[in-house]
Design a protein around this nucleic acid. Structure first.
Lengths: 363, 363
DNA sequence: AGGCAAGATGTAATCGATTACAAAAGTCGA
DNA sequence: TCGACTTTTGTAATCGATTACATCTTGCCT
């Protein structure tokens, strides 16, 4: 009952191949799934019939019967963010290697879309889910837990049983960023935060405050600006910064994009980086090495993070929901470049040394 | 016959809902598909049963029966490239609006993966395909044409019947870029190309040559460097540039990333932009506005391009393969910023004026 | 009340594979 | 050559929805 136009061509089914090869559909199926199960001679017959007919199995039918789709759903808050793009590549590599495919669900910070993806998952179109959005409605969590669908949370610590977290050491690295600025002599700091409801943003903020406390600083020694991990957030922070009478000399931005936005604006206003103000970012996107001056930042092991997340998901899918604790927290690397320098009481002409150092965050 | 662990929970099917509501499965199905087809009273009964049981239709089964998946496959060469990320958002918006989902196939410049996606498409897991890879093996083209799967080519002119192209005016804009540099007085030009097998790269190169011819320049007046649209390509081009005795003063890079990579390296070598060398890019990625100096470039209407591509695909899916010519070629916008300036015979101290102009490419 | 059209619901076939189970074919030693 | 056992193949049920067609209600007009 082929439809209007484009399906009119011969739609070849497994039965056609079976007829052509003079065997049953079961045999054809077996040849395709596990060739050793059928005799060499029959196998050749079938293989030839498949080739001649140009048969491709209908995987929708297969998925229905096997109750598996060999596909995982990955929900990202924002595809345009290079951080997620890199993580996705890691996930993709790992899944592909195991014969799984992936569907990417882009939220674009639009809650409404979220429902669509929950739906997708619940309707058995995928075998598991990786969530990278920082906040998930309670109702959805409940629904999905009830559906007992394997699920891992990345970039967003979900404190739920049965949902492992695969994340980086956001809090520790944030603490270390402050420590780094303090060690350079900065005693008045600024922080460009992430969006408040986001769990990662909260972690990094906590780390920042850890560092503040550790350095013996108080509330009067720092300023916080709210951001959304994007360029424009840095721009807004910079504008606020420029209005201050008593400006911080050390800025920690919780994302590279916001660091870069900040730098652009303050430099345009005549502020020198790093002579007047040091800036350190977070993420380690490729771009950070192409701005002027090159951005000091903590690099996330994005590709590894993706692989690890997919690895954990695959384990859950294959072994069923496991009681074991599969939480993972990967360390970051400090890339010390040109936007940070020692605090100068009297910033005059300073010859900038060019660097090329990289050291691993010690914990 | 629930599997090992995670499927042991009650798997609720349409029959369960039907029983609960005291109606047939047909009625339940109708309520879900088109509520007006059933009487108010029955409808309420069913709705309530659905709610109570927590039923979600199994879309794999539905897809098998309806022979549609309401899903499109989008193949991209490189997810990490912000150009594709933006196009994807446009595609996603359009598809979502029409109730379609999308699967993203990331090639990562790895031909082997390509086969996977052809397979995916052929196995009826998607209703249509959008291809953004610049080169598609002949064999695949044939296979897919035979399968008569709706397909549109974006960012890659495929000269095939039944495969509409939705692209930007690569060639025209390239020509205009040269014209722009020439009008500024530059008579010695450099071109950072894309990867040769890529159709887009070829279009842009052709446009560059158009511009050269139009300006009355000859082969001795320009240099070409091969690239791959990425940062590192610009870096390599810059190194070659620096080795030249008679350097070009106007550079046209066929991607923003390569322009940015180029600028970073030549500036480090003491070349001033735009006093010594003018650089114009192509793409208009957000990032181009955050480098120093801000990059003059042709902006692609990425979001619109994505929407348009998806729109054409949906038309093909809904109306069948059409003989009509659905080719689309969108215009670009010149963003005139700070990396370009007039040719200076004797480049001394020049006060740079800050700009904020944008004008639309006239064709 | 009777008749008829329109509307609502149910029955059962169908989509295209996989796979449990049964049946047939092959292998091998006595 | 005859079981006994293993390997290979076939038959038919199954996955979970949709939908053509048949049947049953309902409403309305005379």
């Amino acid at each position: 009952m082929s439809r209007k136009g484009w399906l009119s061509a011969k739609e070849v089914r497994i039965a056609d191949v079976a007829r052509l090869a003079g065997v049953s559909t079961a045999t054809v199926s077996r040849v395709l799934a596990d060739p050793n199960k059928v005799r060499q001679k029959t196998r050749d017959l079938v293989t030839e019939a498949v080739r001649r007919s140009g048969y491709t199995p209908n995987s929708v039918a297969r998925n229905l019967r096997t109750r598996r789709t060999m596909t995982a759903l990955v929900v990202v808050p924002n595809l345009a963010n290079p951080v997620f793009a890199q993580i996705l590549r890691g996930i993709d590599d790992e899944l592909t290697q195991s014969g799984y495919g992936l569907v990417i669900g882009n939220l674009d910070n639009c809650a409404e879309r979220e429902a669509r993806y929950v739906e997708l998952a619940l309707s058995r179109q995928v075998d598991g889910i990786i969530l990278m959005n920082g906040r998930i409605p309670e109702s959805d969590k409940r629904t999905m837990r009830e559906a007992e669908l394997p699920m891992v949370a990345m970039c967003a610590a979900i404190h739920e049983e049965k949902i492992p977290n695969v994340v980086v050491q956001d809090r520790e690295a944030s603490r270390a960023a402050v420590e780094y600025l303090v060690r350079l002599g900065h005693r008045r700091l600024g922080y460009i935060a992430g969006p408040p409801p986001n769990v990662i943003a909260a972690e990094r903020l906590a780390g920042f405050l850890d560092g503040i406390a550790e350095a013996g600083l108080t509330e009067r020694d720092f300023v916080c600006w709210e951001g959304r991990f994007v360029f424009s957030a840095g721009v807004a922070a910079a504008e606020a910064f420029l209005r201050l009478k008593n400006r911080p000399t050390g800025i920690y931005a919780s994302s590279d994009e916001s660091a870069i936005g900040f730098i652009k604006v303050v430099r345009a206003a005549g502020v020198r980086i790093p002579e007047d103000v040091s800036v350190i970012g977070f993420d380690g996107i490729e771009f950070a090495d192409y701005v002027e001056p090159t951005l000091t930042t903590f690099r996330q092991p994005l590709h590894d993070l993706g692989r690890k997340g997919a690895d954990v998901l695959l384990k859950m899918i294959r072994q069923g929901m496991s009681p074991e604790d599969w939480n993972v927290r990967l360390p970051l690397t400090l890339l010390e470049r040109d936007t940070t320098g020692p605090f100068l009481r009297d910033p005059k002409k300073v010859s900038r040394q060019s660097r090329a150092r990289t050291r691993v965050l010690s914990q």
